[in-house]
Simulated scan of single mutants.
Amino acid sequence: MSRVGKMPVAIPQGVDVSITADQISVKGALGTLVQPVNRLVTVKNEDGKLTFTPADDSAEANAMSGTMRALVANLVNGVSKGFEKKLTLVGVGFRAQAQGQKLNLQVGFSHPVVKEMPAGVKVETPSQTEIVIKGADRQVVGQVAAEVRAIRPPEPYKGKGIRYADEKVSLKETKKK
C-alpha cells in the first residue's frame, strides 16, 4: 500500500468534513472546497481522522489512495491556514500594484499588463517589487502564480523578470570574441 496513503489526515478544530458517494466537502474559516472521490479509493471519517484505503489490490488503486490523501490534506490545510506564493520583480522600473482583484504590472512592455485574479484568490503588494498571492486552494494559488510569472519570466543573462521569492536563477556568461 502507498506510504502516503497509509497516513491519516487529522481534522483540526473549526474544520467540517462531509463525505458523500462522489465527493468530499471541506468547510473551514477560509471557505469551502470540494474534491471528487475516485472510485478506486474508500474514504472513512473515524473520530476526527480521515483514512484512505484502496478499494481493490490493483497498483492503480494503491497509487490513487496516496493521491487522494494528499489532495484532501491540501484541502484541510487550505481552509484552516491557507496557502501563499511570493513573487519578486527584478529589473529597473519593474513595478507591481494590487487594486482589488486586479494586479497591474509594469515590466518593461510598452503598456501595463493587468492580470485579473480568479474567485478565492487575493493578491497583495507589500512593496512595488513584491507580490503575494493568497488563497485556500493550493492548486489555484500555484496556477495563478505561474501565470503571473509567465508574463515576464527571468531572462538568463541579467536575470530580469518576475521570479518566485525562493527561486535561484543561474545566469549565463555572455559570448566572448
Rank of each mutant, 00 (worst) to 15 (best):
V15L: 03
V15A: 00
V15P: 00
D16M: 07
S18P: 02
I19V: 15
T20G: 15
T20H: 12
A21N: 10
A21S: 14
Q23M: 10
Q23V: 09
Q23S: 13
Q23T: 09
G28Y: 06
G31M: 08
T32L: 02
L33S: 00
L33I: 02
L33W: 00
L33T: 03
V34R: 13
V37L: 12
V37H: 02
N38G: 13
N38V: 04
R39T: 06
T42S: 10
K44E: 04
N45V: 04
E46V: 10
D47G: 04
D47P: 01
D47F: 06
G48P: 06
K49P: 03
K49M: 13
K49L: 06
K49D: 03
L50Q: 08
F52L: 01
T53Q: 15
T53R: 14
P54H: 05
P54Y: 00
P54F: 01
D56K: 08
D57C: 05
D57P: 03
S58Q: 06
E60H: 06
E60A: 11
E60L: 14
A61D: 04
N62P: 02
G66Y: 12
T67H: 07
T67M: 06
T67A: 06
M68F: 05
R69W: 00
R69G: 05
A70D: 11
V72M: 10
V72S: 07
A73K: 11
N74W: 09
N74M: 07
N77Q: 10
N77E: 06
N77A: 07
G78K: 00
V79P: 05
K81T: 11
K81W: 06
K81F: 09
G82R: 11
F83M: 00
E84S: 15
E84A: 14
K86T: 12
L87P: 11
T88W: 10
T88H: 14
V90A: 15
V90K: 14
V90Q: 14
G91K: 11
G91H: 13
V92I: 14
F94T: 08
R95A: 12
R95S: 12
R95I: 10
Q97Y: 01
A98N: 07
G100S: 10
Q101H: 12
K102A: 05
L105R: 08
Q106G: 00
V107A: 07
G108D: 04
G108Q: 07
S110C: 00
H111L: 08
H111T: 11
H111Y: 14
P112N: 13
P112E: 09
V113Y: 01
V114M: 13
K115M: 15
P118C: 07
V121E: 04
K122M: 10
V123D: 02
E124S: 09
T125I: 04
T125A: 01
P126A: 14
P126G: 13
T129F: 05
T129Q: 13
E130V: 12
E130L: 08
I131H: 07
K134A: 04
K134P: 01
K134F: 02
K134M: 04
G135M: 12
R138Y: 15
Q139N: 03
Q139E: 03
V140C: 05
V141W: 06
G142H: 01
G142C: 02
Q143L: 15
Q143D: 14
V144Y: 08
V144C: 03
V144M: 11
A146Q: 07
V148K: 04
V148R: 07
R149C: 11
R149H: 14
A150W: 12
A150G: 15
A150E: 15
P153R: 08
P154S: 12
P154G: 08
P156K: 10
Y157D: 03
Y157E: 03
